[in-house]
């Protein structure tokens, strides 16, 4: 079959948008139909946000929009203009792990790691709203994020532990907590 040369995207005009992602401003040209998940991953290179279904079910693509967990596969990037987007990269300290990430490591709350960023984003939002969630609350919140590897048990344990650490350290600031937690995590290893 003969090949047809690629042509300019006739009939698919792009629009220029400005996105605020993890505190950084990005100006880029997008088609209105491009999903936020695709733009984060393939235009901005933030590949920590994963795409598992594009049906709004699996939760792997969860990001924070103005601090609230939302599915980035159920939103167009154009719609995210004027909002603060936070991805897993934005919840990760420069060095080491956040207290929540460290709790996931301690409890073996991840295997293949694909659902993990969505879990981290969702749970981070939970712990900001609820310092001491009970197991039922944790499971209810996690029920929007499918994990096929862990059976959730270690994730629930990690969330409970992270909540405890957070309460005990009274940590309001991620950066401060991150350092101490990383040391604690290192000390427990093996």
């Amino acid at each position: 079959m003969q090949s047809v040369s690629e042509s300019a995207a006739a009939g698919r005009p792009k629009t220029s948008i400005t996105l605020m992602v993890n505190g950084q401003r990005h100006t880029l040209d997008v088609e209105p139909r491009w999903l936020l998940s695709d733009v984060l991953r393939h235009q901005l290179g933030l590949t920590g946000t994963h795409v598992g279904c594009e049906q709004g079910v699996c939760g792997s693509c969860t990001v924070l929009l103005d601090g609230q967990p939302q599915r980035s596969c159920l939103m167009f990037a154009v719609q995210a203009e004027g909002h603060d987007i936070t991805t897993v990269e934005g919840l990760t300290p420069e060095q080491g792990l956040s207290p929540l990430q460290a709790a996931f490591e301690r409890h073996h709350a991840l295997q293949c790691g694909f659902c993990t960023p969505g879990m981290i984003v969702t749970v981070e939002a939970l712990l900001r709203e609820n310092a001491d969630p009970d197991e039922e609350t944790i499971r209810e919140v996690l029920s929007g994020n499918i994990c096929r590897c862990t059976g959730y048990q270690s994730i629930v344990a990690a969330v409970q532990d992270a909540a405890r650490v957070r309460r005990e350290s009274g940590a309001a600031k991620l950066e401060v907590a991150a350092k101490g937690q990383n040391e604690a995590a290192g000390g427990e290893q093996a």
């Binding site: 590949t47 490591e105 790691g113 694909f114 995590a185």
Partner: peptide, 20 residues
């Protein structure tokens, strides 16, 4: 019960999967 060497990159969102 050694914690996993894989975890840090995965937790930080730095794992490189096929579509990445």
């Amino acid at each position: 019960r050694v914690t996993r060497l894989e975890d840090a990159r995965l937790l930080r969102g730095r794992g490189r999967y096929l579509d990445d």
